[in-house]
């Protein structure tokens, strides 16, 4: 359950940015969570919703964008959607694939007032 400490990290990051912007209120935060990032998006969202109370994000709308896993088969080069890291190529059943999407775990933007 590292999602709790990651949620706290988001709050720290938001606090830091708010301070850089002279302590303005954060209205909205947008976070990308990749399906292959090692972060369980639902657990992370639950953790964040519990922890934001009385924080800089207390009044913010939280947008969590799930980013699908994407990979290229190293054998036939097919580009396909990977729902987990062990996904095999749907065409030639090869493994592993070169992952190029779905490992994101970042704060994309804030809307401040």
């Amino acid at each position: 359950m590292h999602e709790f400490s990651l949620a706290l990290e988001v709050i720290n990051l938001a606090q830091h940015e708010a301070e850089k912007n002279t302590g303005r209120t954060i209205l909205e935060i947008t976070i990308e969570v990749g399906d292959l990032s090692g972060v369980e998006a639902d657990a992370f969202e639950s953790a964040l919703s519990l922890l934001v109370k009385d924080s800089i994000l207390g009044k913010a709308q939280v947008n969590i964008i799930r980013m699908p896993g994407k990979g290229n088969c190293i054998s036939c080069k097919l580009e396909f959607e990977m729902n987990h890291r062990m996904a095999t190529c749907p065409k030639c059943q090869c493994f592993p694939s070169e992952i190029f999407g779905g490992e994101e775990f970042r704060v994309v933007s804030l809307v401040v007032e």
Binding site: E9, E17, R106, V112
Partner: peptide
């Protein structure tokens, strides 16, 4: 008025 701050910061960056 409200403004958008684009960050694109990895949450594990610290």
């Amino acid at each position: 008025a409200s403004k958008v701050i684009n960050l694109n910061i990895d949450i594990l960056s610290d």
